[in-house]
């Protein structure tokens, strides 16, 4: 019963967020509704006892990816409401309707075929069900570092290469003029001592005055 009620509220949050993403006229508001959808999915994950997935859902998707979306939207200044009457690509709208409808049909067919009816009850292979003695975090950790260790490390390498590649591609090399400015000598701070203070001659003169 508790699971049903939680699922009901979670699903309502997800759907409201999803409609909001499409319906909001402001790109930043769309991003905010996207966060709502992601949080709703996290709630559903918790109900399914996939606690780790729920946490990752929030940390990675809501915490990092949508933050980057917002960065781009805010810094590029596309945060004004768009005129929906203009079609940048001709025939985009009817094509989008067709694609969306076929995607929905595929998803529904997949759900109906893959499970015993729309509820999904009894679909899980009993041999692959979680034992109660081990948490989902331990299970994911073991699988990740044994069965999929190579794939895991390849993914890490891919991400590192991606980061380095982005830095290399976006970094502009300094021109010769700028290189001159970067000469170590010009980086020195100007001496704080008054001019001639280190001059031996000058020091002698002061000494003579003092005596």
């Amino acid at each position: 019963m508790a699971e049903f009620i939680t699922f009901f509220f979670g699903a309502a949050i997800i759907l409201a967020g999803a409609i909001g993403v499409v319906a909001a006229r402001n790109a930043v508001h769309s991003a905010l509704f996207l966060i709502q959808t992601l949080l709703g999915v996290a709630v559903i994950f918790v109900v399914q006892e996939a606690h780790f997935l729920a946490a990752v859902q929030i940390v990675v998707y809501a915490g990092a990816i949508v933050i980057l979306f917002l960065f781009v939207i805010m810094l590029l200044g596309v945060d004004k409401a768009e005129d929906l009457g203009v079609e940048p690509i001709a025939g985009q709208k009817p094509l989008a309707v067709v694609l969306g409808a076929s995607l929905l049909a595929t998803a529904i067919t997949f759900v109906l075929v893959a499970t015993d009816g729309a509820t999904g009850v009894g679909s899980a292979d009993p041999e692959r069900q979680l034992d109660s003695g081990i948490t989902d975090i331990e299970r994911i950790g073991r699988v990740l570092f044994t069965e999929y260790a190579v794939a895991f490390q390849l993914t890490a390498a891919l991400l590192t290469i991606g980061v380095i590649g982005a830095v290399v591609l976006t970094r502009s090399l300094p021109t010769a003029d700028q290189l001159d400015d970067l000469e170590p000598a010009s980086m020195d701070l100007p001496s704080l001592a008054p001019e001639g203070a280190n001059d031996e001659h000058h020091v002698d003169a002061v000494d003579e005055d003092a005596s």
Partner: peptide, 17 residues
């Protein structure tokens, strides 16, 4: 919760919003 301190990381990343 079983995710424990991951909850802290999740919440502190939401606080940026």
């Amino acid at each position: 919760p079983p995710v424990g301190v991951l909850w802290f990381l999740a919440m502190s990343s939401l606080a940026i919003y």
